[in-house]
Amino acid sequence: MGALYLRRRITNWLALGLSMLATLIGLGFLGWILWDTLMRGISALNLRLFSTITAYGNEGGLANAMVGSLIIDLLGIAIATPIGVLAGTWLAEYAHHTKLGETIRFFNDILLSAPSIVMGLFVYTIIVLPSTALTHGNTTFSGFAGGVALALIALPVIVRTTDEMLRLVPSTLREAALSLGVPQWKLTTQILIRAARSGIVTGVLLALARISGETAPLLFTAFGNNFMTLNPMEKMASLPQIIYQYANDPGDKMHALAWAGAFVLTMFVLLLSLASRLILSRNKVSHD
């Protein structure tokens, strides 16, 4: 055993030990964050949370925020899904090796990590400001505007998954259909999208998980509302926005409500992303 050999061995053990330490640090922070969210959230959970609105403040619950979140999220998904699936189909089926296709795919990837607060301001400019001007201030912020802002964040996720999933469909399927004289739009809508359906659904779930935790774009679009409303043309509360508001409040009871909301939100998002990842792990695709 020479000195060089010993040194190399020690370096190796040291480096591998440090890599294990890094993994433990990562897992430690995950545990720490989840632990606090669970403990503080569960201790603040009660039925009032789901039955009372935020207008009662301390004594209230988060019912209107949960309903609002659900409406805004579903609106966002309802807008983003058709556009995203069609755009992804174009990238995969029509523009695989064209310059425009490559460009759009490239910028879609950039949009995936674009700052969400800027998207909020974009929607503020194109929807909130014009609707304020058109209705003389009767309609300003709205749940609809919030939905559009979230749709812009969901869109690139859905485009990318659809694109990748369609490219996994074997080309024999396309050739078989085309040789039977099926027109391409029928081939795409009735065979290819159907074949890639589970993957596309996964992408939509992933997008839903992503947007339901978004706060920043809702601050200037849906704004918030202390009362229950089902009308998307009114200001609307959402869970992340109420958590933001309550966490910044000095009162301890407000903090407890914020933790309860955080717990509900985290559970919802983690279950969604777990479910979609479970389906995804069957079809190997990357999602960075």
């Binding site: 993994t23 897992l27 995950l30 964050i33 969210t37 935790g213 992340p240 914020a258 998002v269 992303s273």
Partner: peptide
């Protein structure tokens, strides 16, 4: 998967924590 779970936590939760 556990590490990726960390990526799924909403940013507002990081903020509160």
């Amino acid at each position: 998967s556990a590490i990726e779970l960390l990526a799924g936590i909403p940013s507002i939760i990081y903020g509160m924590w």
